[in-house]
Design a protein around this nucleic acid. Structure first.
Lengths: 246, 246
DNA sequence: GGATGTGAATCTGTTCACAGCA
DNA sequence: TGCTGTGAACAGATTCACATCC
């Protein structure tokens, strides 16, 4: 148990948070574990084994145990993990104990859907402002929020601390929007526009490109069809795990 | 040049495709290179260096060169890559030379937006059918397509080969939909529902979970704030590349 | 007994640095 | 000289297998 500080308990009620820097791959999986744990809790489980939780999260158990061990984990040998405790731990590490404010820029086709996406609210995020540059959209009400002009961003940011900015504009506008978000003090950006953003080193950017996902699937589809078409090609479904890495 | 078959040219016009199995990480980046290349082409470039293309795609040049070398690449030392040629190469490898049919299941909040997403059509994909289970939505026209009941899936699949199924239903319905897609012969699935799908080994699944992306950003946000709050914590923006892996 | 936590081995991916070619 | 292509070194992530503890 290398990560346990002696003395005071760490975590939600602990004194010093001391987030040990987790491997990036682990961080990316923690939300999935969290979702699986919530599911366990709703189904009435108080405790769950690494095997069971791993299955629910779609990974193998060794990986799950190593991931959780990085948190200085709270399992019990011979028993498993306490569901409620682990939920608290992961939520704490991910910084979900405080509800984070999200500002969404671009209320076109995709932005419109994101503004009303249930998954955000149900997972500790709160969309607090919608922005756009198109005069036609300004003032429109979407899921209870009024669309404001992007130039009002500094004013809004001044009164409400924005934790995360979501960019759902066309690619051509994305860099300018990113600059405005950064200028307003936003240090985390989720970018749906198909382009590369350049930002200062202290700003984190994650990109989601829906077309890219399809293209990756297309590659595998293409490969499957050429494999089966080739002389020595093994028939589809013959062997091997084909699940594509996320 | 390890991958060149002697004799006949490979690629778009080649005899035997012979897709050398590329590293998964490389496959995931090819679409990004493709986008950057299209941008180059539109800007009038006929040739581009690894340095230039890497910058446009948001990676470093060594990685890009290694990725392209896996295709048995078409660069010229001292000059760079021929933009048009490389576009053809990558589109061929990704299987984008044929337009692939996409079926979308679930026309709720998110599905509605996906049905009209420009990025799909502009990148070689064609949404050919919309499905839902809710009687209230059946018959509705969205971006020129009529929503059909999910039970009609087999009939539609029989007349149009569906390359990719997109699931945009609530989590509770997703597994059943996946089963129906698989039964209809679909072997590639893009899943937006926050749950793990179990499918036969010959079916590829990619998952996009918007809330997970926010939670990963939340972690970094949390860590940044604790770092700056701690005694010895270096101030934000002091050093280091913080861009988060995709 | 049974399940966690973890060193060691392995695999995958990234980066370096330079040979080789235009 | 300039830039690609690539072996070799490096770093990171996954898997194995088992010691450890309830």
């Amino acid at each position: 148990m290398s990560q346990h500080r002696p003395g005071s308990t760490s975590g939600p009620a602990g004194a010093v948070p001391a987030l040990p820097d987790l491997p990036e791959a682990t961080v990316a999986r923690l939300p999935e574990y969290l979702r699986a744990l919530h599911h366990c809790a709703e189904t009435g489980y108080e405790t769950v084994s690494s095997e069971g939780l791993a299955a629910a999260a779609g990974v193998n158990s060794a990986k799950l145990r190593k991931d959780l061990s990085h948190l200085g984990s709270y399992g019990t040998r011979g028993v498993g993990y306490d569901v409620a405790l682990l939920i608290d731990q992961i939520e704490y590490v991910l910084g979900l104990t405080q509800r984070r404010a999200v500002a969404l820029v671009g209320v076109g086709n995709l932005g419109h859907a994101l503004a009303g996406y249930d998954g955000f609210a149900s997972r500790g995020f709160h969309v607090v402002a919608l922005f756009d540059a198109d005069p036609a959209t300004i003032g429109e009400r979407i899921h209870g929020l009024q669309v404001r002009h992007i130039d009002e961003l500094p004013a809004v940011a001044a009164e409400t601390a924005i934790a995360i900015g979501v960019i759902a504009t066309p690619a051509a506008a994305a860099q300018a929007v990113a600059d405005q978000l950064v200028a307003a003090g936003v240090t985390s950006i989720l970018n749906f526009a198909p382009c590369v953003l350049s930002v200062p080193p202290n700003v984190d950017v994650r990109k989601v490109d829906l077309a890219i996902e399809l293209q990756i699937l297309s590659f595998h589809e293409h490969r499957k069809s050429t494999l089966t078409a080739l002389p020595g090609g093994r028939a589809a479904g013959t062997s091997g795990q084909e699940a594509v890495g996320s």
